[in-house]
Design a binder for these strands. Structure first.
Lengths: 176, 176, 176, 176
DNA sequence: ATGTAAGCGAGACGGTACGTCTGGTCTTATA
DNA sequence: TATAAGACCAGACGTACCGTCTCGCTTACAT
């Protein structure tokens, strides 16, 4: 069932991702899908998590810019090469029109999503490279950069920009 | 006509924003709307631009963090208080499923959207506070931060986070 | 559903007979109607058949003009008093612009429609009042007379003309 | 303008005969068409009359069946070879949904249309072959036969049926 | 070994919106 | 002053999905 959803996303993108189409492809009845995933958003969350599970590195080289770069490239590469990117795009789109989808995005996806990013900044904070109090906002900036690239269709491996981004976030000492 | 579109967005959000509804509300025929805005995205772009036009300050106090903070607060406030926020949310959502909408977003909205942000960083670069070569990525980080807040429904005036974000981006010297 | 179609035809005639209107009146979704009757013509055929079913007499008094008169008056009276007349008018109109409707008219309606008329002429042929070889053309003349009256809005009970028509068709011995 | 209407009827039949299409083809504005022909029916009447004008023979050989056959074959041939047939089909169809079209059909087309037919029967009445009082109904039967063939798409030159029809109508002595 | 219930596929259903086409009317700009 | 061009409101067209619902059918458990 999830396999069918992944197929649809891979072949036709989020535009062709309808419950009808997934049911048709899975050889399943629509009510069966609704029984397990009450909304399209729930299905997308599960596709995303299933697809990304344990796939991301948690780099810890002791060098913050290098870690940030490695992680960002891994994330972007995952978006390019699997339905996960389409799923996240769809999930975010869905959340703009449906309160339920926004909640699903926020409560079911975000915790796991943030975690590797916060881990990298956390290590840097422990090494004194960034202030602990900045971790939230730094993660948000980092996330925002990647989301914006995803949502505008720029998931190519733009090393120069990624490294520059990593350097900027790493050098922000926050000291007045 | 645009007024009707704004009304719908204000009252029912992007979820209720259908061409049918806009036509009904405007007392207009659907084909008339399609004549002028071939897709929903085009209509959203125009609503956004019309609503935001000349509303944004272009702060230039000589203090980069202060300028960034002021601009961000103005942008978020604009999103809260007018249909512009709903329009941008809808436009981004639309772009996830339609190539045409992505193009509209990219070519018709982005140039104007970026401009005040780049202006602020440009002034800072001229003052030597940031490297000119970083302007692109800094703008992207700044944009990404705001977009992510919009798309996750956090458009409240979170001064602490905004100031922290501004300070981080301003202190990123970019020195190797 | 058919009841709603009949209502619309009765109240607003063929002019107001749109799928939208029938759906509205039936409290049904348009796709449901399209599922069962792929075209307006199919719906009209069914209305006609359902309405006329087993309603016509099959007169057999041994007197051809009398039989023809009785049948014609029954047919015209049926057209006046029920949506069947409107349905047939609409069906014929529809067939002028749509190949599919023409086929529906020809294959789904005509066989049943002709049958009582041919029966009357068949009996007369068996009695020697008309030549068997003339049955087809006689039926066509008889049909044509009635259709023309229907299509030009003359469905009143014009006994004089009907009897004259019956007499003419009955006296055509066909002998050279 | 009429030429454009004829073109449309010839090329796409009554199905493609919209005022829009005629205007487009004629390089004229729709209101201009509406000024001269307040309804589609009026335009169709004019196309029919213009196209058929003075084209029909008025056979008078002294032999009623022969005259009827010749006239019927001429009429059917005219319908096959020119937009006139399409125009009449369209006009009749139009009349089923619009009172105005029915009036136009009845008052503007019928007088001229009937005339050659009534002329043939009139001559026969003068020769004593049919009763004068039967002329109306005979014309109606004859018309009905031809209309029915037109409306069901049988405009081919079916000589056998036509001659049989002519013989039947001619032999109806009308004797009590 | 058999009766029963849960879960399934299939798909019909009432609805909403899509984007297109046409019918007529009303407004401009030209000639 | 009248006409061409065409914008406009209105609403029907036929299609795609939505989320709910009702069916039988099939398994797999409890008797």
């Amino acid at each position: 069932m999830l396999a069918a959803a992944r197929e649809v996303l891979a072949e036709r993108g989020f535009a062709g991702f309808s419950i009808d189409e997934v049911a048709r492809r899975a050889g399943a009845g629509k009510p069966t899908i609704y029984r397990w995933w009450p909304s399209r958003a729930d299905l997308l969350v599960e596709v995303y998590l299933g697809d990304r599970a344990a796939r991301l590195p948690e780099p810890d080289t002791g060098n913050l810019p290098a870690d940030l770069t490695a992680l960002a490239r891994a994330i972007l590469s995952g978006w390019r090469g699997s339905p996960a990117g389409q799923a996240l795009r769809g999930l975010i789109a869905e959340a703009q029109g449906s309160e339920a989808a926004l909640v699903a995005l926020w409560e079911r996806l975000m915790p796991g999503w943030d975690q590797p990013i916060r881990a990298v900044f956390g290590q840097a904070a422990r090494r004194g490279e960034v202030e602990a109090a900045d971790i939230d906002v730094l993660s948000e900036l980092y996330s925002g950069f990647l989301w914006r690239r995803l949502l505008t269709g720029q998931t190519d491996d733009d090393r120069a920009a990624i490294e520059r981004m990593a350097r900027i976030l790493a050098s922000g000492r926050g000291r007045k």
